[in-house]
Amino acid sequence: MRITQGCFSFLPDLTDEQIRAQVEYCLGRDWAVGVEWTYDPHPRNTYWEMWGNPMFDLKDAKGVMMELEECRKAHPQAYIRFNAFDSIRGFETVTMSFIVNRPEVEPDIRTIRTEVQGRSMHYTHELQR
């Protein structure tokens, strides 16, 4: 099962050259880029681990790509994503987010629907490895 979260998730995985182009797009708009990683891609797991701090003053995509490479070395079987932050409103808002690394084998996430009182439905997700 392919995890589909963030921009570009329905496309084939981006190459490093394509990732660099997206980072240059973000930096060209003065957005800061942050790197996050997780081994648990559950849809409700929105708090991934940060890899260092967001790179607020960076002007060159090479620095972001170096951080990605270090994160890949430390966590080769993790999901890694980039978040681009826009501070135009005076606080950091995630403007763009996309996955840049996936494990070789992705887990299956099954949705379980349960009917409850009346016409209500409850949904739960089960992670299968």
Rank of each mutant, 00 (worst) to 15 (best):
K73M: 13
V94D: 02
G52V: 00
H42N: 10
L11W: 09
N101M: 10
F91V: 04
F56L: 07
S87R: 10
T38K: 05
E126A: 14
C71A: 14
T38V: 06
P103N: 12
V33G: 01
L11E: 12
V94Q: 02
K62C: 05
Q77K: 09
R72K: 13
S87V: 03
E36M: 05
D16V: 12
N101Q: 15
T4Q: 14
E70C: 10
D86L: 02
G118N: 11
D40N: 08
I112K: 15
R110T: 15
Y79A: 02
V94S: 06
Q77F: 08
G6I: 07
F82A: 02
D30L: 10
G34N: 02
Q5Y: 09
C26K: 01
R89I: 04
T111V: 15
V94P: 02
L127S: 14
T15E: 07
D86G: 08
E24L: 08
R72T: 07
F8V: 14
T111K: 15
T93L: 11
F82Q: 01
M96H: 11
E17H: 07
C26Q: 05
L68I: 08
D108N: 13
P107Y: 11
W51E: 02
K59T: 14
R119G: 15
M96T: 11
F10W: 12
R102M: 10
T93V: 12
S120Q: 15
R20D: 10
Q22V: 12
E17R: 04
L58T: 06
A32I: 00
F8R: 04
R20L: 04
T46G: 03
Q22Y: 10
Y47K: 11
Y47P: 02
S9F: 10
H75K: 03
E49R: 09
E17V: 12
T111Y: 15
Y39P: 08
M121R: 15
R20I: 05
I3F: 09
Y123F: 14
E24Y: 10
E36P: 01
A32C: 06
E67W: 01
S9G: 12
R2A: 09
H42W: 06
I88E: 07
T4I: 14
R72H: 07
R29H: 07
W31R: 01
Y47W: 12
W51L: 01
I112F: 15
D13K: 11
T46C: 02
D86I: 01
V64Q: 00
T124W: 13
V105A: 14
S9Q: 13
